[in-house]
């Protein structure tokens, strides 16, 4: 049986790893190659590098970083962030990344997924879905004109609680800033048909909270698509990963802070999972 995967995520700015909490207080946290090696030695099954470099010139440093990582690393890694064209994808894949993840560019032009899959193979194409809980009641409200008045408060509103039958999950783009009106589950099914090979699913509500993954979101996706799913957003403890695998039916769990700050080293997390009957690679 294929093992459940543990995937540390490294945010990269101009070729350096940065660490932040809820998109703030970014600070330099070192050399990506060193960090990658350390995680590999601890037993990471894969790595994800998320490029948050804003300036175009500095993106060159990303390519150099990818090559440097590929030279040293003997486990797979994915690179995401700002990939808009086939040339962007080619530059990263031909520098040694195993997969690229795309989000905004794919939402804006879904055929991009098919083009990537045709060119590089389905197995290279990870669709990142950033999703936020919404209530259908809001939409009905919109029909009666209530939504306009509530528009601002909706954004600040607390996420609808688990178990609410009226919940749906809205896809966001531009780093979680722009709502798209798309339903995450329908989008995942469309992406599977277009040729995505894997889903990287981040709950915007949970991201940075360390309150656990959104298992309802994960389970809703697992129910609908037959692609491997990576859970992301909200991991604070090993129990959260267990929940994502068992209740969320995820295939892999991505986390940043619990690994970065050495609170739960990967072997500790894997031991926790193994004791509870989850198959993980030693």
């Amino acid at each position: 049986m294929v093992a459940k995967r543990i995937i540390p995520c490294l945010d990269v700015d101009a070729g350096r790893v940065v660490k932040g909490i809820q998109f703030q207080h970014l600070k330099d946290a070192g050399d990506p190659v060193q960090q990658a090696r350390r995680y590999r030695d601890e037993g990471a099954d894969e790595l994800v590098f998320l490029d948050i470099t804003a300036s175009v010139e500095k993106r060159k440093t990303l390519i150099e970083m990818v090559q440097e990582v590929a030279r040293t690393l003997d486990i797979p890694f994915t690179v995401g962030g700002g990939i808009k064209t086939l040339d962007d994808a080619r530059a990263i894949l031909s520098s040694g990344a195993d997969k690229i993840s795309v989000n905004t560019a794919a939402v804006e032009r879904p055929e991009f997924i098919a083009e990537l899959a045709d060119m590089f193979g389905t197995q290279c194409v990870v669709l990142a879905i950033d999703a936020k809980r919404r209530l259908r009641r809001e939409i009905r409200g919109a029909e009666t004109g209530e939504r306009a008045a509530n528009a601002e408060s909706n954004i600040a509103m607390e996420a609808p609680p688990p178990g609410d039958p009226d919940v749906w999950f809205e896809v966001y783009t531009y780093g979680g800033r722009r709502p798209t009106g798309r339903d995450a589950v329908a989008w995942a099914a469309e992406a599977e048909r277009l040729g995505a090979g894997e889903l990287l699913v981040t709950s915007i509500d949970r991201d940075g909270t360390e309150a656990g993954y959104d298992v309802e979101l994960l389970a809703a996706l697992a129910e609908r698509v037959n692609l491997p799913i990576i859970a992301s957003g909200g991991c604070g403890r090993p129990e959260h990963i267990y929940e994502a695998f068992v209740r969320g039916r995820a295939d892999a769990a991505l986390a940043a802070s619990i690994f970065h700050f050495h609170r739960y080293p990967i072997p500790v997390v894997k031991q926790f999972l193994r004791q509870r009957g989850i198959e993980v690679r030693p």
Partner: peptide, 12 residues
């Protein structure tokens, strides 16, 4: 087979 996730992705 469609009874499992495709692609088969990961460590086995």
């Amino acid at each position: 087979p469609d009874s499992v996730k495709i692609p088969h992705m990961g460590w086995n």
